[in-house]
Design a binder for these strands. Structure first.
Length: 278
DNA sequence: CATTTCACCTGGTGGC
DNA sequence: TGCCACCAGGTGAAAT
């Protein structure tokens, strides 16, 4: 479900609500899928630690954790990294709140609340990093919200794949997914199938600007709620009202009236206007 | 190495 | 109502 704007919204919400709280106990479900390292190791690492801050890197949520007693409490000694996959949610609840189906993790907090991870399709991932032995998480690719136009243009030099496939490749640029790839390419006037390495400089500059505008606007609106996305407070986003091509197959282009076309590209539904995008 | 395809999951929708 | 095909915000392993 979630791309960069949704993950950013969730990370901000969790940060605001849980900063300074302490994890007393971690409970994990029995499905193996969500765990990049074992639930036992994650529970042992999480229990007793303090939540210093929560932020986003690409599509990952990074919870910075401190340890009381030894050294400076404000210096992170561990990280809990949450990837939401297609259907993952992170929710802050009261302990008596009904436990949703497909709840895979419940962290009981000193404040009396719980942080829960719910994910029906189980494409999401949970990882614990002990910073004394593991590297700090940096994300798989470059950060689209801060990359300069020049560095952005360099990413696609010599690449022989469709620009949309390149945008979806997280090791190149992390955070853009299917919705924001389609919406950015529409706003830049570029066909999704265009070979990335053959785009002209002015096209790449338009795409860079479109991506940063779309992501910033979507973050302002709390992300896109296509079916059931909600943030850490259970609130839906509103950027779906701003979609110009995504899931608008057959409907008139809002600029020129041409019916929006849907094709399959890189295995994903891809939406574009055949008139506005060249 | 770069690129493409497909498996991994559940659930919702729409046709018959 | 049931059954089935198809679709969905994402990756990573395997194939090409």
């Amino acid at each position: 479900m979630p791309e960069l704007p949704e993950v950013e919204t969730i990370a901000r919400g969790v940060h605001e609500r849980l900063r300074g709280d302490q994890i007393l106990e971690a409970w994990f479900g029995s499905h193996k899928e969500p765990f990049k390292n074992s639930p036992g190791r994650q529970a042992a690492g999480l229990e007793g630690r303090t939540i210093l801050s929560v932020h986003r890197t690409g599509k990952h949520i990074v919870v910075e954790l401190g340890k009381s007693g030894a050294g400076n409490l404000n210096e992170p000694t561990a990280q809990w990294i949450v990837h939401l996959g297609m259907t993952g949610r992170l929710l802050v609840t009261t302990p008596d709140a009904e436990v949703a189906p497909h709840t895979h993790a419940r962290l009981r907090l000193k404040s009396g609340r719980e942080l829960r991870f719910v994910d029906p399709r189980r494409f999401g991932r949970l990882e614990f990093r002990e910073l004394s032995s593991d590297a700090a998480f940096t994300g798989p690719g470059k950060e689209p919200t801060t990359i300069t136009p020049d560095d952005f243009a360099k990413l696609f030099r010599g690449r022989r794949l469709a620009i949309k496939a390149a945008l979806l490749n997280q090791t190149i640029l992390h955070g853009v997914g299917n919705i924001y790839a389609d919406e950015s390419l529409f706003r830049a006037g570029i066909r999704p199938k265009r070979m990335a390495g053959r785009l002209k400089r002015d096209e790449l500059l338009r795409l860079h600007a479109a991506i940063q505008e779309v992501l910033a606007h979507a973050i302002q609106l709390g992300g896109s709620s296509v079916s059931d996305y909600v943030d850490a407070n259970g609130v839906r986003g509103f950027f779906q009202l701003e979609h110009r091509v995504y899931l608008r197959t057959g409907q008139p282009c809002l600029v020129c009236g041409t019916p929006i076309r849907r094709i399959l590209l890189a295995g994903r539904g891809t939406h574009y206007c055949p008139t506005c995008q060249r």
